[in-house]
Write a protein that binds this DNA or RNA. Structure first.
Lengths: 341, 341
DNA sequence: CTGTTAGCGCCTTCAT
DNA sequence: ATGAAGGCGCTAACAG
């Protein structure tokens, strides 16, 4: 047993033990190919013997490569984000890149603060959600030449990347489906659109498509709800208290839809008999409601993986990956039904 | 507009512009109280003008305080962990501490790899899940003097901390409740207990308490399932195909319970008429099943906050916080019912 | 209260 | 293929 083990070994210590210079140890550690095979092995053994752990800060300071990625998402308390981050992390971990996560609570000012902190930490790139941010946020990133990716959107700036889907198209898809199966009296319970460009775009797409199909904007009730079961339930209550009840409701998230269905149960409103309910996200809970939820699937897992691929790519490769619109898929289950015309 | 803004300003640049020494700037930035008010303001203004962002790596290297915390959880794809991490992150962010998250997929070897990487990144402390880890993991942490916390458990080592709850007690609580309402033919669908001391402890507590109450171990069927709706459903199928059907099932997680109830629906088994279903976690989905799920509430959010408090405390304060057993609460809803004796 | 001096641990020219 | 030397940006002694 070595005395050395009790202290935190440094690169010089490894060099001493391996009988070579620090520079050589550094080369071995960084997989620099031009190192003699014998020396390389001796170094590796010495490092293992000493329980050597490189100092990331020193490394980052010297080389300006931190192997750190930052992420600012609204919250981890919503599966749609947690799932994306999960797969992003998994992909990055394969290449020993670590991820710092922070949350903004859907607040662009808080997002800016978090981005500042991430920049301070020396992250090489940053993953954001949506395409609306404080100008200062983007300016900071550009100025420091930190790569950034917008997710859950396909709208990018000239410089950043966007990996996600078209929220407006998603809204239109929902509208078209409900119209296709015969509904004409429609409503939407969107997420909170303030500070949330994705929620707003889905609403706009939905309303726009309905209008295109001859349903006046004024005839479409649009409410908003937090992404909580309770929120959906309360919104549905408000909706049902109105005079002109719709025959179908498009919800900005499956969570909201679950609350809507819950309300319907409690008030003996048949789903889809009296009212069709269409969700968004295709979370695992979409198969827990009774009836199972028809919904638009958001490829959250895939988004995380692809974002990881992008971040791991060289800047040359990135050019071809800067814009990625993932397909949306309508998953028809049992919460929606055609209506007689 | 300043020319200086185009380059990344460093601490020296701020000093020059403020007309003082780098040391003074450093003091201001670190809220060292003994700096003249006038100078302090001048420095702050200079920093703002230059868009100065401190270099965290240099800071960490010099001061050995990285303001970085590491976390290794099984997965972010399970709300019970995502919720905890969410509140942990929120608490740490209040004090500008960042959190690096990595996942182990319930594998202690992978956990060790992730911990090594976190140590390399210079985290000041590490949050782990459960109390079973590779000896190397703990040895590394101890040797580098990195504080660590076990969560979701109340079993700690002599040196580390534990902030969570007693899983065995939880299992016993479940058993007692079901017996109290008259059930004698019981089964459990636990999570995968391999490499998961929490799942194993809940199972052991459940079985032990039943035994104490006169129900032989051999009469209690215990199956295991992944934490997925599908897993719970399949496990329930296996359970129902056995000759001696239980009148109550305790599930290792609400997710599993949701799958169990789903199976019951599909096979016209009344819940709780034919069979009572008891969940664990009290996730948001516990109010989505039909009927609503009776379950044992795990204080995930609170655990994150308290863990954050612990990590932000000074080592002196920590002494009193090293062992924290949070109370478990049985939430009775509609999926369980008394049985006639 | 403020400035000067000296590195933290590593990587990266530049030599050899 | 390997070594020597310098410095990345910052903070901690120590002076004054």
């Amino acid at each position: 047993m070595d005395i050395d083990e009790s202290l935190d070994a440094k690169l010089v210590d490894v060099a001493k033990r391996a009988g070579c210079s620090p520079a050589t140890v550094s080369r071995v550690l960084n997989n620099n190919p031009k190192v003699g095979l014998g020396v390389r092995e001796k170094v590796l053994k010495a490092a293992a013997d000493l329980g050597y752990v490189p100092n990331g800060s020193a490394r980052a300071l010297r080389s300006t490569r931190s192997r750190l990625v930052g992420t600012v998402i609204p919250t981890l308390d919503h599966a749609i984000y947690a799932t994306m981050v999960n797969s992003l992390q998994a992909r990055l971990a394969e290449k020993d890149v670590s991820i710092i996560i922070s949350t903004s609570l859907y607040d662009v000012d808080m997002e800016l603060d978090q981005v500042r902190l991430l920049v301070e930490r020396g992250v090489e790139s940053i993953v954001l959600v949506g395409s609306i941010h404080r100008p200062e946020t983007i300016a900071l990133l550009e100025q420091r030449k930190i790569a950034y990716v917008f997710t859950y959107t396909s709208t990018s700036t000239e410089i950043g990347a966007a990996i996600g889907f078209d929220n407006e198209k998603a809204g239109r898809m929902a509208a078209r489906y409900l119209i296709d199966i015969g509904h004409t009296r429609l409503a939407m319970i969107a997420g909170i659109t303030d500070n949330n460009d994705r929620a707003a775009a889905r609403r706009d797409g939905f309303v726009a498509e309905l209008e295109r199909q001859g349903i006046a904007k004024a005839d479409v009730t649009v409410l908003e709800s937090a992404y909580k079961i309770e929120g959906g339930r309360n919104a549905m209550k408000r909706l049902m208290e109105k005079a002109d009840r719709p025959t179908a409701v498009f919800c900005g998230s499956d969570i909201i839809a679950a609350g809507v269905i819950k309300y319907c149960h409690e008030n003996s409103i048949a789903v889809p008999g009296d009212i069709s309910v269409l969700g968004f996200d295709n979370l695992e809970i979409a198969e827990l409601t009774t009836p199972d939820l028809t919904t638009v699937e958001v490829p959250a897992r895939e988004m995380g993986t692809i974002t990881g691929d992008y971040l791991l790519a060289t800047s040359a490769q990135r050019q071809h990956m800067r814009q990625r619109e993932l397909p949306l898929r309508l998953v028809v289950r049992a919460s929606t039904a055609p209506i007689a015309r």
